[in-house]
Nucleic acid binder design. Structure first.
Lengths: 288, 288
DNA sequence: AGTACCGTCACGGCGCGTAAACGTCC
DNA sequence: TGGACGTTTACGCGCCGTGACGGTAC
C-alpha cells in the first residue's frame, strides 16, 4: 500500500506540515513519485512514524529520535535508559522546587509560628483505638483511623483494620494507597496485576488504578492502610460505619453505594457486595 | 548606594544584557542618570532582582513573575500554590513517562508481552526486602524502603526496619512522620512529651518537632516509618548505610553527623533522650 | 586610550503553524 | 472547469535571552 501525505496525516494524527518537516529534516524521508514529485509513504514509513511518535511522547528531541531509530534494539534500550535517567533528574529537580515552594509559603504565611512550635505536639494512638478516641467498625471489624487528614493538613491519612475484603473494586483518582499486611494473607488485584501478599509484605496502589482484595487465609487480615493525600477516606469510612445490621449494599442499594463512592472521590469499577467475594482459580469473583 | 549595570551584573550573576532586557520589558526598571542616561540601580532594585531570580529558579515565566511581584504576600502565596500545582502535574506526567519507558525496556529486553494497554499497576514488596530490591542496613539491622519518594512524586516515603534507637534526637523541618510499632516496645520523646509505645501502637511526629526513641524491651523493635513528604530520607538512610564497621559517629565525627543531618533537611538537636540515655560504643543504652 | 555605557537591530533554538504562489489529479 | 490535493519557499511564534555595531561618556 502506498499513501499520500494527507492520508498518513489523517491516519497518524499529525499534521501535513509536520510530515513535510520530518521529510525536510530527514527524520522520516518519503520516496517520491517520479512524475509529479508527490511524497509516497509505504508500510515501513508508517511503522517508523509510529516509533517516532512514541519517542516524541516520551519527550525526546527529534534529533535524538533520529539517532535512536537507526539503532538495534539493545541500543534503543540503552537510549531509553539514558532518557529515563534524564527524566529522573528532572523529577528530582522538580521535587526540590516543590519543596522550596512549600518552605516559602510556610515562611510567608507562618511568620512567627516557628517560635510557637510547641503548638504542634505529637500524639500516640493506642492499639485497637482510633485517633480522637473514635471507633469505626465496618462489617463488625474495627477500622481505626490512626492519622487523620486533620493532623497533616490533608496530606495523609492512615488506618489500621481487620477485614475480609476491600469490598467493591474501585479506584481513587487522587490518592495513592499503600497497604501493609500485619497478619493474615490476602490476594490483591491492582490494575491488571495480581499479588499474593502475606504478613510483612506490602502493596502500593497508585492513584487512578482499580484495585480490590480479599483475605485468603480463612480469617480476616490485619492491615495498615495509608492514603496520600488524605482525600475523603475518613468521611467515607465513617459513613460506611453507620451501616451495620443491614449491610451497606442492602441498606442503600448498588446505586446508592456507587454514589457513596463517587461522593468521596472514588469510582466503583466492579460488582459490589463485600463478603460475597472469593478467590477462585486465581480470580477474584463474586460468590454464587 | 547606587550601582551601574555592570556592578549589578557582577553582584547577581546575570549578564548585563539580561539586565537591559529586564529593563526593556519592564520586569526590573532602573532609574536613569539625568545627564548621561545611564541606568542606576539602588537597594530596592537589588532586592527585587533577588526575588526575580528566586521565582525564575522555580521555573516561572517572566511575565508571571512580573505579575506576582506587584502583589501582596497573600497573593504571592496563592501564585506559589498555583505554580506548585503546575509542578505537581508535571511530576505526575513525567512519572508516567518513566513508567512507560520501564515497560518498553522490559518489552524490548524480555520480549514478554506486557499488554501495553492498562498503563501502570502497583507493585508488591516482599517482606524483608526493599523497593528496587535494594538492601540498606543500619547498625547491622535491615532498614528497607517500602515506598520510595520516586513512586509518589516525593509526597511520601515508607520504611520498615528493626532498630534499637532512632539515633540522635533530631527534627525534620518539612516532614511529618508516623511510626507504627509492629514488634517490641519503645520509649519515645516527641517535643516535650514522652510516650511508651508497644506493638500495635503508633506515634505521630509533626514536622519541626524534635524527637527520639529507644527500644526498651531489651531487643530491637520492628517498626513502620512513614514520612510525608518524602524529603531526603531515602538518601539519608542510604548514606548512613554506607557506614557499618566504624559506626557513623566514629567515622565522620559528631560534626560530620550534624552536617549529614543538615544536608538532608534535618536538624540534630541533641543526644538521644538526654539524661537517661547515652551513646556508648555506638549503642544507645540506658544510664545506670 | 581604553573601558563602560547607550540604543538598536538581528539572531538562535525547537517544532512546527500559517500562508502565499503555483502545479496536478479527476 | 473547479476544487481538492500536492508542491516549494518563507516568515512567525513563543521564550529568554545573546551578540554585534556604532556612537557617547568617563
Amino acid at each position: 500500500m502506498r499513501y499520500t501525505v494527507k492520508q498518513v496525516a489523517e491516519m497518524s494524527g499529525v499534521s501535513v506540515r509536520t510530515l513535510h518537516f520530518y521529510d525536510e529534516t530527514g527524520l522520516l524521508t518519503a520516496a517520491r513519485h517520479a512524475e509529479n514529485g508527490y511524497r509516497v509513504y509505504g508500510e515501513a514509513e508508517l511503522l517508523k512514524l509510529q516509533q517516532i511518535l512514541f519517542y516524541r511522547e516520551l519527550g525526546m528531541e527529534l534529533k535524538e529520535i533520529q539517532r535512536v531509530l537507526g539503532q538495534a534494539d539493545f541500543e534503543k534500550t540503552a537510549a531509553l535508559r539514558l532518557h529515563r535517567k534524564a527524566l529522573e533528574e528532572r523529577l528530582a529537580r522538580t521535587q526540590e522546587l516543590v519543596r522550596t515552594i512549600d518552605r516559602t509559603v510556610r515562611h510567608l504565611e507562618g511568620g512567627e509560628e516557628m517560635e510557637g512550635k510547641e503548638m504542634f505536639a505529637g500524639f500516640r494512638v493506642d492499639a485497637g483505638k482510633g485517633r480522637f478516641g473514635e471507633q469505626v467498625k465496618l462489617g463488625g471489624q474495627p477500622h481505626d483511623c490512626k492519622v487523620s487528614g486533620r493532623d497533616t493538613g490533608g496530606a495523609m491519612a492512615v488506618f489500621e483494620f481487620w477485614g475480609s475484603s476491600s469490598g467493591p473494586r474501585c479506584k481513587h483518582l487522587e490518592e495513592d494507597e499503600w497497604i501493609y499486611v500485619i497478619e493474615g494473607e490476602c490476594e490483591f488485584e491492582v490494575g491488571e496485576e495480581r499479588f499474593r501478599v502475606g504478613a510483612g509484605e506490602s502493596v502500593f496502589v497508585p492513584k487512578a488504578v482499580a484495585h480490590a482484595w480479599v483475605a485468603t487465609g480463612g480469617a480476616p487480615a490485619k492491615v495498615i492502610d495509608v492514603f496520600q493525600p488524605a482525600g475523603k477516606m475518613e468521611e467515607f469510612f465513617r459513613e460506611l460505619g453507620k451501616y451495620s445490621d443491614p449491610p451497606v449494599h442492602e441498606a442503600v442499594g448498588i446505586d446508592g453505594l456507587r454514589q457513596l463512592f463517587a461522593e468521596h472521590g472514588m469510582k466503583m469499577t466492579g460488582p459490589p457486595m463485600p463478603g460475597e467475594w472469593a478467590v477462585e482459580r486465581g480470580r477474584i469473583v463474586r460468590k454464587a
